[in-house]
Amino acid sequence: MNTIRLARAPLYAIIVSILLTTVVLTTTNADPVAAFTVLFSGALTTPSRLADMIMLASPLLLCAAGLSISFAAGQYNLGIEGQMTVGGVAAMAVLRLYTEGDSVVLLWLGAMCVGTVAGACWAGIVAILKQYARVSEIFVGLGLNFVALGISLYMVFGPWKRPGVASMSGTEPLADSLWLPVLGNTRATVVTPLIAIGVLALVWWFLRATQWGLEVRASGLSQAASQRLGVPAIRRTIQAMLVCGGAAGIAGALQVLGVYHALVPNLASGIGFMGLLVALLINADIRFVAPLVVLFAVLTSGSIQLPLSLSIDSSVSGVFQGFLVLAMIVARALLARKERG
């Protein structure tokens, strides 16, 4: 496909989705200009809003970066929410070992490592069932999402419940010293975005500049052909899933450490699925991951101002994001058809 022509797809998609959302907004007598202003810039107006946006973008970036690898390997990892959740549960298990005086940094590292491994293992189940039992990774992944949610609900309401009172708001908050340090008066931690960017850079490098990445991409194009040509395609596919699960797992651990400071029942809360939308939108092209992630985070984070300043329900943000993905896929299909003449 012609790259220059393809590059037009996002432009068309954005125009179309803005138009469609405008239609939705005007039918409800809302002012579209004001609404879009808030949506696109609301999250950037104060340091604290910017910080909240970054804290949403970071786990999203981790998921989207991970998904770039699993997509490259031709795997649709819809189990990413579950992988994030078990990462958080596992991290919490480590953090609960804390007693006054322990090395906090060691616990942070431990929690992140264990969270990563747990997420990778959860994805490993999917990958192995796919490769050796021919069960679709889509359905195993979705099924395991429910299992992971069940586990986290069970922990929050069972063994790890607050003294006397089980609460939907999660377990008793971690000791203050265990919270990741924040920047100034905001809720943004330093570590989270750094890790997210680091993982993105690693993924980029591995996918684009190593033999391993080439083999993963080859497996994604055709596993059978790659295998026959001597590429360990099955192993690469499984490894790609493990990496994606690991990225989701560390995202889950970071949500516990830096955002919720507790295990909450719905830890993943749609971030994994949003990562999937991002990946679909950009055809899992690693170059566009970061800007798209920021766009989605800005839209989601800014949406909370809609009901307050404009009397518009904040779900408009989700409507726009949905239109964007759909328009993108349609635009790409139309351009591809035109290309083929």
């Binding site: 819809l78 999937l276 679909l280």
Partner: peptide, 11 residues
């Protein structure tokens, strides 16, 4: 497209 539908549905 199928994946997208499933993903949106899950959301």
């Amino acid at each position: 497209v199928l994946i997208l539908v499933v993903a949106l549905l899950s959301l």
